[in-house]
Amino acid sequence: MEIFQIVVLGIVVLIILTVLRETNPEIAVILSLVTGIIIFVSILPKLSSVVEVLNSLARKSGLDTIYFVTTLKIIGIAYITEFGSQLCQDANEKNLASKIEIAGKVMIIFLSIPIIIGLVEAILSIMP
């Protein structure tokens, strides 16, 4: 069971972190970064198979690849932004965290603008 490994890793790191935070907070940040990356990497194979299934479903349902790719990109941006901003919050850098979140939001809006334009054009063309 991989979830056991991940949770146990999390608990062990948590105990180490509680001690480290008081003695050397600098190393604590690095430790939590590394743990985060390890957990993320360990779920990547599973995530990729999920995406594979979704991809075949999308192909069958006639979803244009441009939509599917855009949605996946948006989800990826959400993950990465979340990861970065949580890390900054752990290090007590709330300012930086909110900046990262703003960047993520702008990126998501930038990616969805073409879809919005396409829709608006289509709807306008239906109107007499």
């Binding site: 939509y67 959400a78 998501i108 809006i109």
Partner: peptide, 19 residues
């Protein structure tokens, strides 16, 4: 992921469904 970005991503997915 359940973050403040969730609603933004949801809007984009909704647009795709509409299209």
């Amino acid at each position: 992921p359940s973050s403040s970005l969730k609603k933004y991503a949801k809007v984009a997915i909704g647009l795709v469904i509409m299209a």
